[in-house]
């Protein structure tokens, strides 16, 4: 009996010791990939016993914490500008993890309305105000568009979704670029602001004739209607996991700091974007708690995320990385080091 108790105690103590010896990586940032990341980190923990703690506090918050050296990695939907990179005291790498897209959702009983870049810009600039506007009618001749006012709904909170959408509009409309520009929060010419995807879709659902933009994952999970968008090659593309991955199959720069909105790919959905994990190139500079073992764990985790981890993307409606994106990400990860010691051979 006594022996049994001792054995039990032993097992408990061993487990506690194991729990404490496990490395725990901490990250914070973008909320858009959060469901995918939690799935990935959970699966990774099951196999490799490395715990990852990720808090979805928004890209801006993640970037600030990375700068303040309180976390090991940051999640971000936006790429850092040269100016922002200068504020860090060491080089930062952008590792792409998956892709997402922004779709136009509306409150009309007509599925798959077609939009051209010009129409979208004009609606959000407040120039097209009726659904039966000649410009919309011209590309939707098979549909019976009603004589109804368009109410524009957009995000009120700063978000990566807004950044992707306004980045796209800045690329396709010169006027948008000069008047409004792109960013996580912008000075909207028209429309009502809803907080979060749920705020936007809530307002769209209850306002007849409303149009708004949400993430594709959110639209699919909630069975929202969404429109087709004409891409640079002139094809009307339905947003889907496949057409988003296609959008990233273009010539990519080595540092992956690129927005792929208005893609040149013929089959690509034009309002797509990468979501990134940002890390210090020299992980030794990340923070004071970083050790060689932890840095190695982080490098391995990122390697796993762009390879085996990709299979968890599709079921959650995220688009996996294309071939060239994975290659570029591999090359970036091979550059990671801990005070000079390369982490991935």
């Amino acid at each position: 009996m006594f022996k049994k108790i001792l054995l039990c105690l032993n097992i408990i103590l061993l487990n506690i010791a194991k729990l404490y010896s496990q490395t725990e990586l901490t990250g914070a940032g973008a909320s858009f990939p959060y469901p995918l990341y939690s799935k990935m980190f959970d699966e990774y923990y099951k196999t490799y016993k490395v715990k990852v703690n990720y808090q979805s506090i928004g890209s801006g918050g993640g970037i600030r914490q990375l700068k303040a050296k309180t976390i090991d990695f940051a999640g971000s939907d936006a790429i850092l500008t040269d100016e922002q990179l200068k504020e860090f005291d060491d080089e930062i790498l952008h590792i792409p993890i998956c892709l997402g897209a922004v779709v136009l959702t509306y409150n009309l009983d007509i599925p798959e309305i077609k939009f051209t870049p010009e129409i979208i810009a004009d609606i959000f600039l407040g120039r097209i105000t009726k659904w039966n506007d000649e410009k919309i009618k011209k590309v939707n001749q098979d549909k019976n568009l009603p004589d109804m006012n368009i109410t524009v709904i957009r995000r009120s909170d700063g978000s990566g979704t807004t950044f992707i959408f306004t980045d796209y509009l800045s690329k396709v409309s010169k006027e948008w670029k000069e008047k409004v520009g792109s960013g996580t929060s912008v000075n909207w010419p028209v429309g009502l602001g809803g907080k979060g995807n749920e705020g936007v879709s809530g307002l769209v659902k209850q306002t007849p004739g409303a149009i708004g933009y949400v993430e594709l994952t959110y639209a699919l999970q909630n069975n929202l209607l969404f429109g087709l968008v004409k891409n640079k090659a002139g094809n009307f593309i339905k947003p889907s996991v496949e057409s988003i991955t296609e959008a990233s199959n273009v010539k990519l720069p080595k540092d992956m700091r690129i927005t792929i909105t208005d893609t040149e790919n013929k089959k690509g959905y034009p309002i797509s974007a990468f979501t990134y994990i940002l890390v210090y190139k020299n992980l030794g500079k990340a923070n004071e708690r970083m050790t060689y073992e932890k840095a190695k764990d982080l490098a391995n985790l990122l390697w796993w995320m762009i390879h085996e981890g990709q299979k968890f993307a599709r079921p959650l409606h995220y688009a996996p990385l294309g071939k060239s994106a994975v290659e570029n990400a591999e090359n970036l990860l091979k550059k990671l080091h801990f005070n000079g010691k390369i982490l991935i051979q």
């Binding site: 506090i57 928004g58 890209s59 801006g60 918050g61 970037i63 600030r64 936006a78 922002q84 009120s156 909170d157 700063g158 978000s159 990566g160 996580t184 929060s185 602001g193 907080k195």
Partner: peptide, 9 residues
């Protein structure tokens, strides 16, 4: 403040 602070860069 609540809307924009988290994503202000």
């Amino acid at each position: 403040i609540a809307n924009e602070f988290l994503e202000a860069i």
